[in-house]
Design a protein around this nucleic acid. Structure first.
Lengths: 211, 211, 211, 211
DNA sequence: AATGAATGAGCATTCATTCAT
DNA sequence: AATGAATGAATGCTCATTCAT
């Protein structure tokens, strides 16, 4: 019907690296929709429509719906762990105490929530994905968890974080974070402000007490 | 196929009150499955199978899938607000300061998460429910939110809770709470322990600091 | 829920003949609903609801849904053929010419359409009823058709009806009749007027021409 | 299961216009079945089976069951009103009196009954269609009714048709027409003959009388 | 590289029907 | 005489997935 919409939006650039770019565009579209509607309420047709592309095209770039999730997970974890991504808030750099490093870590994952990448993973339906995907989860998630827990442990040791159970603390914060997109008070709490408020709040809870 | 499984499990007891008991059994089964798989991945067939009952039987007790959620919501909110339910941790009783009351409130809703009742609601797909259900949400949820926020405000005033934004704080805690069932470390954190740890952790974050 | 509605309405009278009365009440309710919604859109639940009775009760009086149609057919045909039913317009009485007798016949079946009894049968889904019902159709319908056709033949012979194919003429009129409930111009054509207009119109078409 | 039946029968011809051809084939299959069994007893599965095609295929060509009826209505009305369709019996041409034009109109709609297109619409369950379809009905049907009524009025004026109520007359004839497929005497009245007989019969009823 | 066409599996929902009471 | 409870079978519809082009 409409001829004015350009397929793939403005994603394309150079003639050869297009494959990866398009793959990324699908991932972002999927992440956005899945955050809004959840995994199973997001059909491949929805994703295709958002990109002005036909359904089978998705299958040219991904084996199946499951692989979309799997890739989303891989990319997200890579983004968290890669020192070259947003180096300004990469946590593991010398000269910072535990609290400072944890705050960087928080900013890092809060940004992924804002980009829709993280929260669609946190709430994904593990029981219904195929074994390969579940395995990827079990391999990838701990990579991040270990990093976070180690930062907390270091912070407790250097006195910048109040003594606590590192694992539970991290789960607590990630949990609160995954609920963040549900904060349905956009008037009172604009997008950026919520992220700041969140980091501040979490850090406050971890600060050591006197006595 | 199998004749050994008893329909309705061990739910039935006395001959007359069976209707409500069965309705409750369906609600519990639905809550359990919806917590694990989410609303739209939980089919009425799944619920029926779990109870060793046929699909249309569900329709004898509920008008449709939506009504199951609606009832779940109603029962849950009632349970939170009713002083006669678990009076030992009903928060609004005289002689307690804000922090003590909020801890009671937390124990109350943590228990509902353990029963699967709460967390399936927190993550429900509001966009896909019919207007009646959405309306019920919009009427019921604030009842609980207001109660919690008032407790926090009282606590700040009487000095038992550190100054904070009551709304954001409550959302933060509810978010962490709704993620609680995803804590997949059953070895390290047995069910009961997680609840205690959660309450303790949340309360610690709210305690006022010196200086 | 409701206690004020009396089951069976005011149908019941004497203690023993109740069975037939109730059977008749079911038939009338069925006819009414089936005329409005058609055979397959009329569920036994609808009929039961209309009578403030439970669904299995219908099964006490009729073997199945098909038997309801079958009985409806039998009763309707009986009503048409029985001289004691509405004797004022029973067609086969001495001293009347063919046209007069056919007008009586028309009034008779138009009344059954008004009572919902006939038109739900005329449009019934013969292909989907079970063999017994189809057989009943094949036995009963001709009884009426033969009577009507004979009246037309007599009218042609005595000169009161224009020469025509009796079978086709009757089908033509019955067809127009069965469409009568669809006349959706209630403002212009109130219920009673439509019946009169219909009879008049049909008779006019049959009147002999000069030359 | 069976490999011998060709999907789509012999409908396909040229490679590009297939979409419309297939859409038309579905419409014809739907019309045929709905005439035999009525709207609600005709499932999309039945239509698909008749075409040796799977159920979801229907959804590739039509949004839902309602749209099938809607299209059927549109095509039928278009066929009646379009002067280029069967121009040999298009009624509104100069040089014909009212009776001649009405006879052409009758032949036109009788042909649509033979093609199953018309009668499945005449008996459609308006109460159960969605608003869009009902609206289409309310817009389209009058187009045909007005044309027919105007022809009758013209015929009365030019003396070729006996004075009558144009609206009621048209309803009467359309009603008889819609019953035509139920004429279950194929031996005595072969398809073509019935159509001729019907037109002749209707016209005779409308012919003016002397005196 | 992308798409039109087609399908199997699944889901919410309805309904005729049965059975124990 | 009547009903509450339960179910198998069907129905409209969606969706992930495939295949030929």
């Amino acid at each position: 019907m409409v001829g004015s919409k350009r397929a793939w939006g403005n994603t394309l650039q150079k003639p050869d690296e297009q494959f990866e770019l398009k793959r990324g565009a699908i991932l972002r579209a999927a992440a956005q929709l899945m955050r809004q509607r959840g995994y199973s309420r997001t059909s491949l047709g929805d994703i295709a429509d958002l990109l002005n592309v036909s359904k089978p095209t998705i299958y040219y770039y991904f084996r199946n719906k499951d692989e979309v999730i799997r890739e989303l997970l891989r990319v997200t974890v890579e983004t968290i762990l890669d020192p070259d991504e947003h180096p300004d808030d990469f946590p593991n750099v010398p000269g910072l105490n535990g609290a400072q490093r944890f705050e960087r870590y928080l900013r890092r994952i809060v940004r992924l929530v804002a980009d829709d990448m993280l929260c669609c993973l946190l709430t994904a339906p593990k029981e219904m994905l195929d074994p390969a995907t579940v395995h990827e989860y079990e391999v990838c998630s701990p990579l991040v968890e270990r990093m976070a827990e180690q930062i907390i442990r270091d912070g407790i040791e250097d006195g910048s974080i109040a003594p606590c159970d590192p694992i539970a603390t991290h789960l607590f914060i990630v949990g609160a974070l995954s609920f963040l997109p549900n904060w349905s008070h956009p008037e009172a709490y604009p997008a950026g402000a919520v992220a700041d408020m969140f980091v501040e709040f979490a850090m406050q809870g971890m600060r050591p007490r006197q006595g």
